[in-house]
Design a protein around this nucleic acid. Sequence first.
DNA 1: ATCGAAGGATTGTTGAACAATCGCTAAATT
DNA 2: AATTTAGCGATTGTTCAACAATCCTTCGAT
Lengths: 239, 239
Amino acid sequence: MATSAAATRSASGTVATSAATSTAAARLRVAVPSVADRVADELRLQLAEGVLLPGARLTESTIAEDLGVSRNTVREAFAELASERLVVRHPNRGVFVASLEPGDIHDVYTVRRVIEVSAIRGGGSPGAVAAVRAAVEEGKVAAAANDDEGLGTANQHFHGAIVALAGSRRLNTIMSQVLAEMRLFFHKATMDANFYSGYLKDNEEICEALEAGELEKAAELLLAYLDRSEEKQAEVHGE
Amino acid sequence: MATSAAATRSASGTVATSAATSTAAARLRVAVPSVADRVADELRLQLAEGVLLPGARLTESTIAEDLGVSRNTVREAFAELASERLVVRHPNRGVFVASLEPGDIHDVYTVRRVIEVSAIRGGGSPGAVAAVRAAVEEGKVAAAANDDEGLGTANQHFHGAIVALAGSRRLNTIMSQVLAEMRLFFHKATMDANFYSGYLKDNEEICEALEAGELEKAAELLLAYLDRSEEKQAEVHGE
DNA sequence: ATCGAAGGATTGTTGAACAATCGCTAAATT
DNA sequence: AATTTAGCGATTGTTCAACAATCCTTCGAT
C-alpha cells in the first residue's frame, strides 16, 4: 500500500530548471503540497476507504513512523483533519477517528437540507446544470456495471453538483466537508447492495425538474429525498 | 495581558466534590485550552479588534517571541486560523491576515443568504425565538448608549440567533466562522457612524414577523436586508 | 535599464528532549 | 473481597536547535 515514500529527493529538482528563469518557474508553480498536507491526504484516503474505522485511535508516533515523517508534521496534519471534523482530539489522550452519534446524523442532514435545497431553488448556470446531469449519467453507468463503489461516489458528485449551482466557493467547501464526514460511516450502510439503487431514479427526477426550470418541484423532490435518506441512515445506525 | 480567560465555567454539576475526588474531578474537567489554542485565541482577538489588519504579515518567530511560545506552537495556531479563513497561507512565504476581495464579499453573503433565510423559514423553538428578540433589545440598548461597537456585536448576535433557530451545531459553527470572517473588514465600514443604525429597524421588523409566525414574511425581509447589506459593503470596498 | 547571480531572511521539516497527563496494574488499606 | 492508593509505562503537549528549501532583495555584470 502506498507507502508515501516521501523522503529525500534533494538536489535533483532545481538543476534542470536552472536556465528556465526563476520568475517563470515561480509563476507556474503548482503549489507542491506540503508534507503535512500529503499526510492529511493519505489519512483522508484511509478514512474514506474504511481502513481507519470510526473510534479508532491514531497514535502520533505510529503514523509518523509509518509515513516516514516527523511527529510534528503528523500533528499539523491532525489539526487539519480535526478542523474538518474527520478526527476528534481528546486532550492528552490522543486523536480518534470521528464517530457520528445519532444526533450528528440529524445535524448533518440539517446542513444538507439547508444548503442543497437553497442551492437548487436558485437554479444555476447551464454549465452547472450540465454538471448535475453528468453526475446522474455517471450513476447510471456505475449501476449498469454493478459498481456499488462507483455508484456511491456518483451520488456524492450529484449532490456536490447541486451545491455548486449556487456558485459559491465557500458553500462548495462546506459541502465537501460534510460529504467527507458522511463517508466516514457509509461503510456500514453500503453493506446493503441496493442502498443507492433507489436514489438513482430520485436523482434522475430531480435533475429533470431542474433542467425544465421547475425549481420549486426540484427542491421538493430533493427535500423528500433527503428526509428519506436520513431515515435510512438512522435506521442502519443504532436507533 | 490578554488573557485567554475563557472558560472555566463548569458551573453545572459542580455539586459535591468532596467525596468524589479524583474520578469526578477527571470527569468534569473542563479541558484547559492548549497553548496553541490560547495563541489562536489571542490572534483571533487581535484580528477582531483590528490590531492586525487585512494583508498584514504574521511572522512565526515574531509572534512566538511576543507570546512567549515556541515556533511550532505558533504554527499549530496558524493552522487553526487558516482553517477558519482568518489567515491565508502562502507556501514558503508566510501567513497573512485574510483580506476579502470583492468576489469574496459576494460569496460570504451568498452563504449568509442560504443559511440565514433557510433557518428563519424553519421557525424555531420559543427559546430560540426569544434569543433573537434578546439580540434586538441588546441592539436598542447599545444604540441608546451611542455605543457603535456594542451595536455591531448586537447585530452579529442577532444573525447568530437566527441561524441558531435551526438548532444545528454545525450550522452554528459555520455561521460563527462567517461572522468572524466579516469582522475582519468591518473596521473600514464601521467608520460610518450610522452604518448599523438602519439595521436596527430591520432587525425589529424581522423579529416581529418571526414572533408572529409569519415566517415567509420574515424570510423576505431578511433576504432584502442581506441584499442591501451586501450592496453597502461592496460600496465601501473597492468597486 | 535589464538580467542574472549572491546574500539574508523566513518557512518547512526534522529530531531529540522533557514535563504533564492518562490508563493500567499492583500494592495497601479498610 | 472490595476499594482506594500509589506507582509505572506510554503518549501527548511543548520546547529547542538545527538544517534544507525557498523566497525577496540587493548587488553586480552585461
